[in-house]
Design a protein around this nucleic acid. Structure first.
Lengths: 186, 186
DNA sequence: TCACCCATGTAAAGTGTTACATGATTAG
DNA sequence: CTAATCATGTAACACTTTACATGGGTGA
């Protein structure tokens, strides 16, 4: 991540804060208690990430005296933060995203509907499905060419990956149906 | 990663060097050209990682004057390196490995047969299958309890994960069959 | 000669991990 | 009174990313 990009954890926090203004502690609990894949629940990651978001003016903190408890610093997303979030959510899906950054794509999907609306979500899913098809074909091609050299375990490991991506493909097709049959916005 | 542990990239390199003595450049090409998931092909990651392995005595480099080309430093695994690799490969599978470190588990599987043999591979697959079942059940439980609160996109994102893990489960069962029907070692 | 591939590496900067520090409140 | 939970943070360290540096060989 270079100087003016935001790390994935930053976007995860930004998206959650957009859904509901939260304190660092609230956000930590989400990572601890729910199966939100692979984000650190350690304060050493979350608090610095939140400070970076605040320094860039993407969130704004206000100290709230909780119900007799210690002070809570509740973070709210700013207009600039919402703009940044939307830009990230609606950016293009590149080839290698499907192979190497699937978790990022699923994170984007999880926030898309709430922040950018139904149309953007459907568009995302269709692009996702298309890239997945290409990627699965690539993997199958690779498997066919290198089947001999790989040995049994290498072959099976690759097949494991292919099956996983095929499952995502079925899911994407299902998700598109769900969204297309959803009644239009009021 | 604390002071005396080896990062995942280190194990990936160690396993590949065990399969076939290689130079840093050879290893880089593997990450660039094959769908070996998510490992950096950048020299800034690979060369320092190789130096660390060499400092710990897990691999040994010897400079080979290539066919008229520039010198190549070919790395070979040492007995200590093989011991370290085997220990990593045959270590237990913890609960959160399935959820958060699936790529590490698949990397282990890919090396297991060659470095620790068929019996260890079958044992690994059975443990993997068992942990996966527990994890899928956990996710389904979470989905049932929180379905309301999640909203449609959150629900779908979670379902995507569940489908992926179910695909791995089917794969594991398939892989166990393949290994059990494999003729016994000479 | 110019560009590209082979081949190895370093430097700066950013991020995450682990462990620690601090302090208030509530339940037993 | 003691432990657990709420709540926020810092410091040291290791790793990855990005970009750069170096130098020989090969094909147009």
């Amino acid at each position: 991540m270079s100087r003016n990009e935001i790390a994935l954890l930053g976007y995860a926090l930004l998206g959650l804060i957009h859904q509901k203004p939260s304190s660092g502690y609230d956000l930590r609990k989400i990572f601890t208690d729910t199966p939100m894949a692979g984000y650190s629940d350690s304060p050493g990651a979350i608090y610095p990430a939140l400070r970076r978001l605040e320094e860039r003016g993407l969130v704004q903190g206000s100290i709230v005296a909780g119900s007799g408890l210690r002070q809570r610093k509740v973070l709210t997303i700013t207009p600039a933060g919402l703009a940044e979030l939307k830009q990230w959510l609606t950016g293009p899906i590149r080839q290698d995203d499907v192979g190497n950054h699937l978790n990022e794509l699923m994170l984007r999907f999880a926030f898309l509907d709430g922040a950018a609306g139904r149309a953007a979500t459907i568009q995302f899913l269709q692009a996702f499905e298309a890239e997945l098809k290409v990627y699965v074909a690539t993997l199958n091609g690779f498997l066919k060419i290198h089947a001999e050299k790989l040995g049994m375990s290498g072959r099976l490991a690759l097949e494991s990956g292919i099956l996983g991506y095929e499952a995502q493909l079925q899911w994407a097709s299902h998700a598109i149906h769900v969204y297309q049959n959803k009644e239009n916005p009021k």
